[in-house]
Amino acid sequence: MSAAFGSSSWAEGLAATKSNYTVDEKLTPIEDVTTYNNFYEFGMDKADPAALSKDFKPRPWTIKVDGMVAKPQTFDVDALIKAFPPEERVYRMRCVEAWSMVIPWDGFQLSKVLDAVEPLGSAKYVAFETVVRPTEMPGQNATFGSLPWPYVEGLRLDEARNPLTLLAVGLYGETLPNQNGAPVRLVVPWKYGFKGIKSIVRITLSDKQPLNTWQAANSGEYGFYANVNPAVDHPRWSQATERRIGEGGFFSSSRHPTLPFNGYADEVASLYSGMDLKANF
């Protein structure tokens, strides 16, 4: 339907209502949002996901929700979109690599899905899993340098239930392009981008903190919480500022100051009161 999504086999219009969740900042151009991606399942270069995801098939698609819930269920993604009509949310996206974007996502709150399965009182954490399809995801075939699959992420249950936490099924008013995590991905705007697990097939509630993929790969650099925090450096660079993608050019600096919780402190800082955010990075 849209030429802008040249590399997606699935992009089509998505009816999304406006919401109050927006930021008064310039949107990152769609070309940049859809060509500059970290999605190691398709390759480690930023251009790989757009270039190598053409064969990926985001339909039919189901998400299994299980673990410590009263009503474990397997949802069809289109049924979810029907049940929870997407709304547009313009969020800042801050990558741990010190670059950022402003993206108009279309999706619904994760809390709606959690409510449907009725978490048990014992459930404290939510684990997420990406699909494993080596035939469609060339990065999962790489014998060298790639991560262990499936990609795993996790949130505390209260983080998962926060109204900001979104399951995105589209961006810029169209279904998610493959390279952005089709057909459904997590968006947690106050955390670094790697928490936003893509192409989700399973959500499991548990009483144990999940070991997320990047923490397993390099626990000195990546933690479980990964809250955006200008005061806590990455071992290899400062997190005090960020390069805003698609803004400025070669000679005009696009550096912005990074905000605590990526500017969402009012909504989420209370989740971490009393916690040492330096130790729990």
């Binding site: 070309e31 940049d32 060509t35 500059y36 930023k46 670059w99 390069r243 070669f250």
Partner: peptide
């Protein structure tokens, strides 16, 4: 390429 805006989304890092 960078000066003419043809070096992708993150031209400085790429250069």
């Amino acid at each position: 390429l960078g000066a003419t805006g043809n070096l992708g989304a993150d031209p400085v890092k790429t250069f």
